[in-house]
Simulated scan of single mutants.
Amino acid sequence: MVATSQAFSGRRKMRRDLLDLSDDRLRDIGITRDEALRAAERIAWRSDWT
């Protein structure tokens, strides 16, 4: 249970961190601002995005 909670927390942090990246950095990792916004909006219990 703790590991699952930590995994969700880690994913949530990753999604929030995407919003802090500049457009140049996002382009470097191969995603658009739109994709970053959609990823940040994903609900925590969905585990299809790691």
Score class of each variant (00 low, 15 high):
M1Q: 06
M1C: 01
M1N: 09
M1K: 04
M1L: 06
M1S: 11
V2D: 04
V2L: 07
V2P: 00
V2Q: 03
V2I: 06
A3H: 08
A3L: 11
A3W: 06
A3Y: 06
T4N: 02
T4H: 08
S5I: 00
S5K: 03
Q6D: 11
Q6F: 11
A7V: 09
A7P: 05
A7M: 10
A7K: 14
F8D: 03
F8G: 00
S9T: 05
S9N: 11
G10A: 10
G10K: 06
R11H: 08
R11Y: 02
R11A: 11
R11D: 10
R12H: 05
R12N: 03
R12G: 00
K13E: 10
K13I: 04
K13L: 13
M14A: 12
M14P: 00
M14L: 10
R15C: 12
R15N: 14
R15M: 13
R15E: 12
R16V: 07
R16S: 14
R16W: 00
D17A: 11
L18T: 05
L18W: 10
L19Y: 04
L19R: 08
L19F: 08
L19C: 08
D20I: 02
D20R: 10
L21T: 00
L21M: 15
L21R: 05
S22A: 15
D23L: 01
D23N: 15
R25I: 06
L26Q: 05
R27P: 01
R27H: 13
D28K: 09
D28Y: 02
I29Y: 06
I31N: 02
I31F: 06
I31W: 02
I31T: 00
T32R: 01
T32N: 00
T32Q: 01
R33E: 05
R33K: 12
D34Y: 04
D34G: 01
D34A: 04
E35K: 15
E35T: 13
E35V: 10
A36D: 01
A36R: 01
L37Y: 02
L37A: 13
L37T: 15
L37R: 12
L37V: 14
L37D: 13
L37H: 07
L37E: 15
R38T: 12
R38P: 03
A39G: 09
A39I: 11
A40N: 13
E41D: 15
E41S: 15
E41M: 09
E41G: 14
R42F: 06
R42D: 07
I43H: 09
I43R: 10
I43E: 09
A44K: 05
A44I: 09
A44G: 03
W45V: 00
R46D: 13
R46Q: 13
R46T: 04
S47M: 14
D48V: 07
D48C: 11
D48M: 04
W49L: 15
W49H: 11
T50S: 14
